[in-house]
Design a binder for these strands. Structure first.
Lengths: 345, 345
DNA sequence: ATGAAAGCGCTAACAG
DNA sequence: CTGTTAGCGCTTTCAT
C-alpha cells in the first residue's frame, strides 16, 4: 500500500487533540499545559511539551481567535508605502514588535481614505490584537479611526486625526519648524518660503501653523505653497516661486525630503545656486537626502523611539486597558544640518 | 434606563444568525442566500440581502477560515521594505489584488532568512489564500518557500529560489545585462566593472552570469565586486576601484540604483567625472535615479506587469489548481538611458 | 427549497 | 489538578 501525500495541501499541521492524545491527556489539559493558564502537574506538563515538540505543534491562531482570545498579531496601516519615510517607520515597528514575539500585518492605504477604511476593517476582521495607524487625512480618516479604536487598542503614529480621542505618538512639529527657522535666520536668511501641502496631513498642518507664527517677517509668513508630498510638486513649486524674480525667497523650507529633492533639482536646472542663492531644507531625514549635491539639511524624526513607544502604548501585555485613552506623546525632533542650508558666501 | 455602550469593544458586528433572524429564516438559508452556494427562493434571498445590508453584515473571515474556506486575503513577504524597489512592487500587487476585491497582508523579512520563515508561517497560520514572495536568499530561503508552496498557492516574484519547483514571475536578468553592456559598448566604453552582491540574490546572480559571459573582454569579465544592495557599498566599491588608477574601468554597472547612487556620489567626491571619465548605471529605475546629477541610466523592471501576472498565476478564482506548478514567466526589462551613461566628450 | 445538526480548533466555565 | 461540556461564526452535509 502506498502512502499518498495530500496533493492539495501538504502534510497537515498537528492539532491540539493529537498532542493531547500522544501525551495521554484531555485536550483541555494540554491547552492549559501549553498556555500556562492553569496549573498542571509537572510531569504531565512535561509530557505535553514533549508531545507538542514531537508533532511540531503550534496553536492555531484562527481557532484561538474564534474563541475570542488574543491572536498575537498587530495590524498597521500606512498612508503611502512609496514615501520612503514609512518603510523606515514600518521597519522600526517590526523591530519593536519582534522583540515581543508578535508579528505585524501591514497594509498600504495608497493615500486614499476609502482604501484606508477598507484595510482597517480587513485587519479588524482578522482579529488583530491592536492597530497602529498613521492616518491619511486628519479629518476624513477620523470616522474610520474612531470606529477602529472603539473595537481594538489603537495608536496613531506620526500623523493623527483631529477629534478622535485616541493615543498618539509623534514628533513635535512646531519645535521642528522653530529649529529650522532659527537655523536659517542664524545663517542670514530673511525671506523664507514654505513648500507645504494642503491641510489634510496633520504633521504638515502643525508645521504651517508654527511657520506662520515664527517666520521672521510678514512677507515670509504669507509664503506658504500647498501641494503634495512629491518630488514633482517640489519642482513645480520652484517654477512658481522663480516666476517673480523680485520676490524670490532666500530659503525654501520643504514639507518633506521628496519635495526638497525635487526643488533642489529644479533649482539646479534653472541655474539657481544652493545654498548660494537659496537655502533648501527637508523633513524626515530619509536616506536619500545625503545623496544630493549639496546634501540636504533635514529634520530627523525619532523613528525608532516613536515605534517603541507606540508598541508600549498598545499595552499588549496588560490584561485590558481602556481604549481611546487619548494620550499624546510628543517627542523631540532633531535638526540635521548639511550643505543645502549653509550660509551664503 | 440608559443604553450603555460596550466599553471594551464598541458595537459588535452583526452575526449571520442575527441576519437570519431578521429575515425570518434559518442561518443556513441565510448563508446560502448570501454566498449563492445553493439556490434559494428569490423573495427569501431578497429578504436576506435587505437584512444583511440593514445590519451592515459582513461575513466573518475567521469563522469561514475555521471551516476551511477561502479567506479573501493574500499574504506577501518582501526581503527588504526599505529598498525602494519593493514598495513599488507592493503597490503594484495591491493594485492588482484590489481590482479583485481581496486584501493584502504584507510582511518584511528585513533581509533575514529566519525572519522570513517566521513571517511565512504566521501568514499560513492566518489562512491566507495564497502567498506572493520575493525570497531573501536563493538557497537559504528554499526550504521555507517549498514548505509554504506545499500548503498554499504561491508565486515568487522578482527573485526566486533554486530547486523549489514553484511558480515565478520576473524580468529577464540576462537580457537586462545584455542591453546594458551593448549600450555601454555602443557609447565607446571598453573597461567595464560590475558592482554586484554575493550569490544570495537570484536576480543579481543571473546578472553576474550574463555579465561574465557578455562583457567585452577578459579584464572586464573578471571585474565583479561583491557587496550588498546599499548606498554604502556603492561608495566603498568606488574607493576600492579607484585604488589602482591604471586599472580604472570606464563604466560601472551597479546591481541596483542604491549602489549606483552611492557610487555616483563617491565618484563626485573623488573628483571623477560622470559620464566623462566613468559611466554609471543602476537597476530597478527607482524614483531617485532621476534626482542625481547626472541622472541615472537604469533598467526598468515591468513592475505592474509582474504584479498582474503574479496575481493571475495565483488563480484565486479557479477552484483548485495544482500547487508547485513550476511555471516561470520571464518578462522583458527596459533600458532607460539617461545622462550617467552618455558617451564621453 | 429549507431546517436541523455537525464540526472546523480552541479554551473558559463548571464540575468533580 | 483534570475531564466534561459548551460554543465562538460559519458552511455543509443530511434529512425532510
Amino acid at each position: 500500500m502506498v502512502v499518498t501525500k495530500d496533493v492539495a495541501g501538504g502534510p497537515a499541521r498537528a492539532r491540539l487533540r493529537e498532542v493531547a492524545e500522544l501525551a495521554g491527556v484531555h485536550p483541555s489539559t494540554a491547552s492549559r499545559a501549553l498556555s500556562g493558564s492553569r496549573a498542571v502537574r509537572p510531569d504531565v506538563a512535561a509530557a505535553v511539551q514533549r508531545a507538542a515538540e514531537k508533532l511540531d505543534y503550534r496553536v492555531d491562531p484562527i481557532g484561538r481567535a474564534l474563541r475570542g482570545e488574543r491572536t498575537g498579531t498587530v495590524g498597521m496601516v500606512v498612508p503611502d508605502i512609496v514615501n520612503p519615510f514609512f518603510p523606515a517607520v514600518v521597519q522600526a515597528v517590526e523591530r519593536a514588535l519582534h522583540a515581543d514575539g508578535r508579528s505585524l500585518f501591514l497594509c498600504d492605504a495608497s493615500n486614499d481614505v476609502r482604501v484606508e477604511a477598507e484595510r482597517i476593517e480587513a485587519l479588524l476582521d482578522r482579529r488583530v490584537d491592536a492597530l497602529i495607524i498613521s492616518p491619511v487625512h486628519q479629518y476624513d480618516s477620523a470616522p474610520a479611526v474612531r470606529r477602529a479604536a472603539s473595537r481594538v487598542r489603537l495608536v496613531q503614529v506620526d500623523r493623527s486625526c483631529v477629534g478622535v480621542g485616541c493615543d498618539f505618538v509623534g514628533a513635535d512639529q512646531a519645535e521642528a519648524m522653530r529649529l529650522l527657522i532659527r537655523h536659517l535666520v542664524d545663517n542670514g536668511r530673511r525671506n523664507l518660503a514654505f513648500v507645504a501641502t494642503d491641510d489634510s496631513i496633520s504633521t504638515v498642518s502643525e508645521r504651517i501653523v508654527a511657520y506662520e507664527q515664527h517666520a521672521p517677517n510678514v512677507r515670509s509668513r504669507r509664503r506658504v505653497f500647498r501641494g503634495d508630498l512629491s518630488v514633482e510638486w517640489g519642482a513645480r513649486a520652484v517654477d512658481m516661486i522663480l516666476q517673480d524674480p523680485r520676490q524670490t525667497p532666500d530659503a525654501l523650507i520643504c514639507a518633506n525630503d521628496l519635495i526638497a529633492l525635487g526643488a533642489l533639482k529644479q533649482l539646479r536646472t534653472r541655474g539657481c545656486q544652493v545654498p548660494g542663492n537659496i537655502a533648501v531644507t527637508g523633513f524626515d531625514d530619509t536616506p536619500f537626502g545625503v545623496l544630493s549635491e549639496p546634501e540636504l539639511t533635514s529634520v530627523r524624526q525619532p523613528v525608532q523611539q516613536i515605534a517603541d513607544e507606540a508598541v508600549r502604548m498598545l499595552g499588549l501585555t496588560r490584561p485590558r486597558s481602556t481604549p481611546m485613552a487619548g494620550r499624546r506623546l510628543v517627542l523631540h525632533p532633531e535638526l540635521v544640518v548639511r550643505g543645502s542650508s549653509a550660509a551664503p558666501a
